[in-house]
Design a protein around this nucleic acid. Structure first.
Length: 350
DNA sequence: GACTCGTGGAA
DNA sequence: TTTCCAAGAGT
């Protein structure tokens, strides 16, 4: 195979010129690079997140905060609420920290991979991607798509994550000096639409003539992956405290699970998940059932208790706020608690 | 290197 | 239904 030659790059770029996806954060092939702010924002949103899930959030963020200075000036609370539902909330915290750093240096992002890598929320992948796509720098951009494409091109049999060093070397070897941003995006488009995880469309692939795995006749055997750990089941309780068309909401601690997000009070299931935790007050509780939710490394059955104290006049203990039920969709609840709220409201109707 | 950290769509 | 997994980063 000649996969290390320049032919891979030129074949891929020719394919990209004809088949590039039209995405809201992207400039068409060969046109000037888009605003670094938009490149950075899209790359952070796309970390471990599908294009379909990101689109509406990207539109909402760029409409509300058209430039990095505007985002930097926003409050933590409104940015976290705007991110609600997208997941991996540390990204939103780092996003705001990064925007404020960039705003403090005149609103200009660093234009080198090294400078970008030093910003909060930009790891090896995102720094390389922004350097290449927004600033035209040659950078070796390696995400899960590139890992898959490269592992197949070279039939790398070592399992991930151990194979990453080898994959990076091979990716470097096929990365051209020119059109580095287009090359990176082309690799990702190829991985997303042709060289897919399951049932790759080798008959449509511009690199099939370079691909060792294809020649072996079993492209989907690569990349080899280490076996996954089983997800333990956890159990917890959440509490719906309602008074005069308002519900009591709290803010979760800044770090850890759903950190910084608005939430229903709970029994601290994220720390000790045996369902034995205490409620925020004593009184007439009624069970409203449970919601099941799957996180990255465990499943949770969250049992919901509703407080029916009609004469409730004091605030529950601790920090929190009464939130109007008719504006609950603006509270920015992460999906777990949005599910619980829907359950409470449906039980309330019944 | 291993672990934590969300979500929803596809097969 | 269950499993897999998607433009990863931080610790």
């Amino acid at each position: 195979m000649d996969a290390s030659s320049d032919a891979v790059g030129s074949d891929l770029l020719a394919w990209y010129d004809a088949h590039a996806r039209d995405l809201p954060w992207r400039a068409p092939p060969g046109t000037p690079a888009p605003d670094p702010y938009r490149v950075w924002l899209s790359e952070v949103m796309l970390q471990q997140t599908t294009v379909a899930a990101v689109k509406d959030y990207f539109t909402a963020f760029t409409s509300r905060w058209p430039a990095v200075e505007a985002l930097a000036a926003a409050g933590d609370e409104e940015v976290m609420a705007a991110w609600a539902g997208l997941g991996y909330y540390a990204r939103a915290r780092n996003l705001l920290a990064c925007a404020r750093e960039v705003a403090a240096r005149g609103g200009h992002f660093p234009d080198t991979e090294e400078g970008l890598r030093a910003l909060p929320g930009l790891g090896a992948y995102t720094a390389a991607a922004v350097a290449a796509i927004a600033f035209g720098r040659r950078a070796v951009v390696v995400d899960a798509n590139v890992e898959r494409v490269v592992a197949r091109l070279f039939a790398i049999g070592e399992p991930l994550p151990g194979a990453r060093t080898m994959i990076r070397e091979k990716a470097d070897a096929i990365t051209p000096d020119a059109r580095s941003g287009d090359f990176a995006q082309a690799m990702m488009d190829l991985g997303a639409t042709v060289c897919t995880s399951r049932s790759p469309r080798c008959l449509l692939c511009p690199l099939s003539g370079h691909c060792t795995a294809r020649a072996m006749g079993e492209p989907d055997r690569f990349p080899v992956k280490a076996p996954k750990k089983a997800k333990p089941a956890r159990r917890g309780q959440a509490f719906w405290i309602e008074q005069e068309e308002q519900v009591w909401l709290v803010r979760r601690p800044g770090k850890g699970m759903l950190g910084g997000m608005r939430a229903l009070p709970d029994d601290n299931w994220s720390a000790r998940a045996d369902g034995s935790g205490e409620g925020p007050l004593s009184g007439p509780w009624e069970s409203a059932g449970k919601v099941s939710h799957t996180f990255t490394h465990f499943g949770l059955d969250l049992h919901l208790a509703v407080y029916l104290g009609a004469d409730w006049t004091r605030l529950p203990p601790g920090e929190g706020e009464w939130w109007p039920l008719d504006r609950l969709d603006e509270a920015g609840l992460p999906t777990l608690f949005a599910k619980a709220a829907r359950l409470a409201l449906s039980e309330r109707e019944a």
